[in-house]
Design a protein around this nucleic acid. Structure first.
Lengths: 213, 213, 213, 213
DNA sequence: CATGAATGAGCTTTCATTCAT
DNA sequence: GATGAATGAAAGCTCATTCAT
């Protein structure tokens, strides 16, 4: 059994190392300029070996992007939303989510890069998947917004547009600070960014009103 | 002269119709799945004709994306910023800009789609161009934010993150309402979205404080 | 009639200028890298005009090489062989021929270049023509050699090999001094070369025997 | 190891058989009329296989011509020049060189043909290489001539022109007897030709003086 | 006669995928 | 399982030639 297990493990390892190599190559060259030969060369296996583990170049790409989506979903699921009955702990809760999310993206920088740069361009089916992913996200966030409005944590607004704006804010920061950073961001930097985003989300850009006496 | 002019026009027309066809094909299939043969078939000319007007598939793609960038830059240049001494006319000015921008993007829906879906994935040189474009935009917006903070139109913040958030908010709305809309947005819808974005930018999502007595 | 003549002349002129342009382009780029578009651009006429005067790219090439062969034949025909009853005036007569030949080749340097560099490589039919040309030349020279042996102007030998050697000597000198010269040769230089060739032909390279007492 | 060796050999063989096929096709049709499809069809492999072994049509052509030049240089290097202190053993030495050279060219008839017919016409870079090859040859031969003149093996002359003439003599004989022979020359025929050339080189065509008493 | 835009056959080259070893 | 040589479909691009104006 140990042997069987180790064999299975070996197999999984090989698959994993090929996938890792593919991630690197896709991140560096993009899907269409990445050649299967580049992927296998990096692992040091033969061209044919690739096809023992993946049916096609496209399949491994899809798997990689699936991994990304799963990872994002998973990390959001980890979010312990906590008590959100006042604007203050709402703010804290959002910061918490932001921290979790950005950290996981930084840790998987290349996946993130592939998703943002290539995701929509490889083939229509995956573009569709991504759009669905976004729609779900959008719906969830819209719902949360509506709920939070009822709780008086946020004001009345077009909750969908609000959701989209929130998503977009985060995305562009990811693009700049994670996908194409001048240098990899430190944990402190990330925390600062998250705070700024959350503050902006809650308070907007307007000058703060003098605190009511 | 009429003849000369008409001939010139004919030539320009041919180039334009090929470009239009390319836009459609790129929008529908993406750069890599678009074949030159598809582009010419749609215009009803021979394969060789394409190369009378464009040196390569890549050249026409670059031109198309350049057109997009020029268009966006141009439409922003049209923006008459007006007097912005109070938060109210600041808000109005932003709404004005948003209206201009979204309208031009709607009018050039396919260009917008190509830019957002393919821009970063075709070749590294263009990805670089796009990043530069974004950086410029970012710098300009960051500067404006700083200035507006001095004028007390916005509060103190990390002006760069603020700029990125603003950009992202707009972008995601463009993605959803212009690039992949369930149905093409009406002018009213667009105006509504812009208003929501601007309100969100200025006021944030927090419940409005009770108006001072 | 004048008009008719001038029109005819104009037509011939146009054909001639296209041919001249073709000669330049073929000499510079070789047949296969020469494009019809290069030829017409140099004359300043439209692409279609070319086909009013020549049926094809190949036809004009063939005509050009024919011109070369005609020119060479013609210049040899001009040769006044003179009295050749002693080795001395045989030598003078050969020098005369050499002078005529090299001068005409220098005057038509580009034709010469095309012939030597491209003649055999363009298409089998012309290669065949060139081989026939050479064979004729070879036969004539072999015959002359035989005749001159009878007259005791040259020694007994394999007259054909002798003819080939003679041809080759001249050809390589043409290649070096006319087709690819460091600088265009002066008349004196040419005369010197001819003399050297003829002396070599007659006397060989061996040290001269001491003149009989 | 046997297997490894046989595999390596197989690979080298494949490359070699493709090259051999290319030699045949280039010899028969010339570079520009030769299609990669013709080359592979003759070997019975797929079009893509060609590109496993050679980067381009031009690369294989260049390799083939390089092979030719190497072969010629190599066979001349084999030449054991021997003692050359009298005209008689000078003559013998030259005959020796000639025999070696012509035999190697006959054995590689198609290479020789490609070199002579196509060498200068395919692309400027190779034409340049060939000119350099000739220049070196020319320089070596000129130097030898000068040396031999000092040794009183040949008379005073323009040693460069002498070198060129020698080269040319040999070349035209190669063209006629090896590149385009009516039938492949026998060993005896080749020996005869060499002797005739050498005799001509040394003694010229002039009637031999009566031997001194 | 002259034009030059249009043609399209035909080329070289690439690379994901297969399969005999 | 692993290999890597072989495949061949499919693409972009060129340019001699044509023909409507």
């Amino acid at each position: 059994m140990t042997q069987a297990r180790s064999r299975t493990t070996a197999k999984a390892d090989r698959a994993a190392s090929i996938k890792q190599s593919a991630i690197e190559v896709f991140a560096e060259h993009g899907y269409h300029n990445a050649k299967v030969s580049m992927i296998v060369r990096r692992v040091g296996v033969a061209q044919g070996t690739f096809y023992l583990y993946y049916k096609s170049k496209r399949e491994i790409f899809d798997e990689i992007l699936d991994d990304f989506l799963t990872m994002v979903t998973g990390s959001v699921d980890q979010w312990n939303i906590g008590d959100v009955d006042t604007v203050d702990n709402f703010r804290a809760s959002l910061i918490d989510l932001g921290d979790i999310l950005l950290q996981v993206l930084v840790k998987n920088q290349m996946l993130t890069q592939i998703f943002f740069n290539e995701g929509l361009a490889v083939h229509p089916e995956f573009a569709e998947r991504i759009r669905n992913f976004y729609e779900e996200l959008e719906d969830v966030m819209t719902g949360i917004n509506r709920l939070n409005a009822q709780r008086n944590l946020i004001r009345k607004a077009d909750y969908r547009v609000l959701a989209l704006c929130t998503l977009g804010m985060v995305e562009r920061c990811i693009q700049v600070f994670i996908v194409n950073p001048e240098e990899p961001p430190s944990v402190e930097e990330l925390r600062h960014i998250v705070r700024e985003i959350v503050d902006f989300f809650i308070d907007g850009a307007a000058p703060q009103p003098a605190p009511a006496l």
